[in-house]
Design a binder for these strands. Sequence first.
DNA 1: GTTCCTGCAAAAGCTTTGCAGAAGA
DNA 2: TCTTCTGCAAAGCTTTTGCAGGAAC
Lengths: 137, 137
Amino acid sequence: MKTLNELSNELKKNNIRLTHQRLKVLEYLSNSKNHPTVEQIYNALKKEVPSLSKTTIYNTLKYLAELSLIQVLAIDENEAHFDAATETHGHFKCSTCDKIYDFDIDMDSCETEELDNFEINEKLVYFKGICPRCLSK
Amino acid sequence: MKTLNELSNELKKNNIRLTHQRLKVLEYLSNSKNHPTVEQIYNALKKEVPSLSKTTIYNTLKYLAELSLIQVLAIDENEAHFDAATETHGHFKCSTCDKIYDFDIDMDSCETEELDNFEINEKLVYFKGICPRCLSK
DNA sequence: GTTCCTGCAAAAGCTTTGCAGAAGA
DNA sequence: TCTTCTGCAAAGCTTTTGCAGGAAC
């Protein structure tokens, strides 16, 4: 998980301006324990930054993803979720309550020889099923 | 990989009618070695079935996915890809040429204890990077 | 004869784009 | 001052929905 300072420095290094709006998005993402969508970021910040637009959120997230400072999760069919933790880990989505859980997974131990000549930059692991809380209901 | 007959029987069992259009979609999917999108299925079949609509393709794929007879791949941000192979395996997407490669992976060997109380129904593994052919250019 | 399906058109929802005014460096 | 960014509105795309006519069983 990157700190707000690390994220800021990384952007500065790439000549991406640290505007007020971007800093707020960065701050929200780095404090976030779940995996917010653009909609959720927008709703969370619009009180504090009333003029904020979704366009700016999309723009900021695009740069962060290009610099590999955040992960884009496609586990949900409808909209993208964003994760400030970029270490390889798994995501479990409950089909009942839609909550997304993180879990550790060692992808190196189940590596495959078939991809020996491939340059692998990103490893995404999505499990789907039913979480304990929904199972007990 | 399911055969056309297995797919048909599975649908019949669930009271889903085997219309001409659906059989064609099934046939195309079960012969397909890549991971077609709705657009690709549509373009491939419209000569043979001129009246075919994308609505029907979406409809058929929805039933197949609900019955777990096909996998829905969300590896591409823009549109869904469909895979008639339902055994757990990995998908590698080349960021340069956008081709999707299959690879075997043993997910059981890297299982995590954190999900002990979860009911896991689906395991998706997406790797992204650059394929050998694009690397050599 | 029922019931379900098809395919058109329209709607819905997420994301991108164009652009004039505003803010960062 | 120069360049980049913001935020609005509109457009773009994939996917879904409503519905009348048609096909499956």
